[in-house]
Simulated scan of single mutants.
Amino acid sequence: MNVDDTERRIVNALLADGRASPRDISGATGIAEPTVSQRIDQLETRGVIEGYEPRIDYESLGYDVTAVFQLTIDGDGLPGVPERLGDAEQMIGVYEVTGSHDVVAIGKFTDTAAMNARIKELMTDDDITAVETSVVLNTVTEYGQFRVEGE
């Protein structure tokens, strides 16, 4: 999907402050406020901007354990397993991948008992043939976004 320089500047302003008003974005980019409003509407309609969400620090809410699950799926289990994981509570990322595993999923848990319960669910799923779990020791960066560069 192509975006022009004006849209790119608006997207980057929103990445810097997702709560910025069209007036704020206009001031930061030099793009006229009505143009900013119109372009944001167009970006939303085209699906470039998918929505606006708060970023939650789950650790501050008691979700101290982050786990990365690498799953090997029985051939008939795709796409069912990734869809189920994507709908599961506490799973913040689910990816179909290439390599020695079929799915990588990331979950947040209040404690190791909650994480172990999820591991047991995965291990008893008939569509999953293998589960490898890594517990995150230190989060360096999370929910990263990056500025959109020009072509």
Rank of each mutant, 00 (worst) to 15 (best):
G27V: 06
Q42A: 04
K120H: 08
S134C: 14
D102Q: 02
Y63L: 03
L78A: 11
D5F: 08
Y95W: 01
G18I: 00
A117S: 11
G75S: 13
L71Q: 04
D74S: 10
Y58D: 10
I49N: 07
M123I: 07
M115Y: 02
T141S: 14
G86T: 01
Y63W: 10
R8D: 05
P54T: 00
F109H: 03
V3C: 02
T66E: 10
T29P: 02
S21R: 12
D87N: 07
I73K: 01
G144T: 05
T110K: 04
I92P: 00
V104P: 11
I10M: 15
D24E: 12
R8G: 02
T141H: 09
I25T: 09
R84W: 11
T141V: 09
S134Q: 13
V103W: 04
G18F: 01
V11S: 01
D57C: 10
F109Y: 05
H101L: 14
R8P: 06
H101S: 15
E121N: 10
L122D: 00
R39W: 08
E53M: 03
D125T: 01
V94E: 06
Q145M: 05
D125R: 03
R19H: 00
L137V: 14
D24T: 02
R147K: 12
S134T: 14
D57E: 08
S26Y: 07
D5C: 06
N2A: 15
V136P: 07
E149D: 12
Q38M: 02
S37P: 10
G30V: 12
G80N: 10
R46I: 12
S26D: 01
G150C: 07
I10N: 06
T98V: 11
A16D: 13
E44A: 15
K108F: 08
I119L: 02
G144D: 13
A130K: 05
I49R: 08
E96A: 11
M123N: 13
I56F: 07
I56R: 03
G80H: 12
T66S: 14
